[in-house]
């Protein structure tokens, strides 16, 4: 039951973008069309879950026994970058269809702070392996929801010509993101 709450909590209450403000770069950069936003969201789910498993293993099996916990940032970045590259190579051969649908989004996520952020959160909260995976899955689903909602809003905004010139494009997108964030803050306190 705890896992269910953890999952729902990481989607809505602690939404990776709108509450924790991680991964804002793709949130604004890839959210102009809902098709690409969907692709990005799915790729994030894929990478985030894999990265959570790998970083948990590296942290608990390598860094903790050697008392090198302070190296986590460095090693997490190394692990995530290598993992994404490896997955990209493997997918291209093993599953070309999935590779095509994830496309350019895979390398884009290599240095995404949401991926690193979730790995660090898992570590700080002392989650077990299962909890880490659930948290990663919830966070990335939250990312997908947020970015698809944002893309839908921006598609409509881009058609509106009544916006003052100084607000067109990114400024109005940032205002929208802020309002969405406030809306998602409404979930806080529902799950402890």
């Amino acid at each position: 039951m705890n896992l269910v709450w953890l999952f729902l909590g990481s989607i809505f209450v602690n939404n990776i973008i709108l509450s924790r403000f991680l991964g804002c770069c793709p949130f604004l950069g890839v959210s102009t069309k809902s098709e690409t936003a969907k692709g990005m969201g799915v790729a994030v789910i894929f990478v985030l879950v894999l990265a959570a498993v790998m970083t948990w293993l590296a942290y608990h099996l390598v860094l903790v026994p050697l008392h090198l916990e302070y190296l986590y940032t460095l090693s997490f970045i190394l692990i995530i970058a290598a993992l994404v590259q490896f997955v990209e190579l493997a997918l291209k051969k093993v599953n070309p269809a999935l590779y095509k649908s994830l496309g350019i989004f895979l390398p884009l996520i290599t240095t995404n702070c949401a991926v690193l952020g979730v790995a660090v959160i898992n570590m700080n909260e002392k989650y077990t392996l299962i909890e880490s995976v659930v948290n990663a899955l919830g966070s990335s689903v939250g990312f997908l929801i947020a970015i698809v909602l944002m893309a839908g809003l921006r598609e409509r905004i881009s058609r509106n010509t009544n916006i003052p010139k100084c607000l067109q494009g990114l400024p109005i997108a940032l205002v929208t993101a802020g309002l969405m964030s406030i809306a998602f803050m409404g979930f806080s306190g529902i799950i402890q």
């Binding site: 090198l68 460095l74 692990i79 590259q85 190579l89 051969k93």
Partner: peptide, 22 residues
């Protein structure tokens, strides 16, 4: 530790680029 980690991942990627060459 970091050197070995780097080496392992480097070797893994090198292996993958040959094994999964398209």
């Amino acid at each position: 530790v970091m050197g070995v980690l780097g080496l392992v991942f480097g070797a893994l990627l090198a292996f993958a680029s040959i094994k999964f060459f398209v």
